[in-house]
Design a protein around this nucleic acid. Structure first.
Lengths: 138, 138
DNA sequence: TATTTTTTGCAACATTGGTGCAAAAATGTA
DNA sequence: TACATTTTTGCACCAATGTTGCAAAAAATA
């Protein structure tokens, strides 16, 4: 398991450090998305706040994680699937926020439908955020 | 015009104050969404920061405005159309964020296509945020 | 107009995010 | 393994954003 994590870091030309391994491990073991606070408040590993910020930034740049739009002023991060590359996210799945457990889940299999924009608009990225009740809370 | 504004406030059982009138007016005259900072940095009206926060909160609660999901840690607000009621938003249009002018536009006529969720998920609200280049910047 | 209720502004605080720099850790090389 | 180089980390400090309590001011009500 820890081998797999080191591999991911190596593949992305990142130094293998305790912090990065532990944070990446959190994502691999999390069913949903994580906020900065979730990582900082992790009990069995304490990093400096700044380290967490920088690690998350690095992971986003490398295409290991992506961030998810939210209606409050928080930033959520989730693991990218294999088709994300450094500096280029292909993030075409739906994000689901559960009103009960408050978790955000990437619905990898739900593809975003095509949206036809009015004339003159050029479309680059489309984010779909659906809220409701998830399969575990119903 | 100012009459219309007072009416909206009255209809929502809100005291009619200078601050609320001016902030609501900004929304009525804005083609797109507004951030807290846009309102605070408004030149011809200066309110206390706290007043702006509280006014926006109140407007969201009353269903006058709604907030739009973003991938950064900002909150965007936009006017609700008539079918929003207090505590109950029906916000089924697409939001467009222009990468050039950085404005957010509600595309009222672009209806969100139906998304089929996996079994067990109940859908309440769907937000679609598309980024790219708007019709004015192209 | 007078009284009651609501809203505002101020001060103080909490949280979140960013920067520069020296110490520490990781990497590459002999 | 030991060393030099590069990268990352932690600390101190700063800036922006958001919140709360409370007295003064404004709006609604009688």
């Amino acid at each position: 398991m820890m081998e797999q994590i080191a591999d991911i870091l190596k593949k992305n030309q990142l130094s293998i450090t305790e912090g990065r391994k532990k944070i990446l491990n959190m994502f691999l073991n999390s069913p949903g998305a994580l906020a900065h606070a979730d990582i900082e408040k992790n009990t069995d590993a304490s990093f400096d706040r700044v380290t967490v910020y920088r690690t998350l930034q690095t992971f986003v740049e490398k295409g290991i994680i992506h961030n998810i739009p939210t209606t409050d002023n928080s930033i959520l991060y989730a693991l990218c699937k294999d088709n994300c590359e450094a500096g280029h996210h292909h993030d075409n799945h739906v994000h689901f926020i559960c009103d009960v457990c408050d978790k955000t889940i990437c619905l990898e299999n739900v593809i975003i439908p095509e949206v036809r924009l009015p004339k003159g608009f050029t479309q680059k990225q489309t984010d779909v955020v659906i809220s409701g009740i998830c399969n575990k809370c119903k």
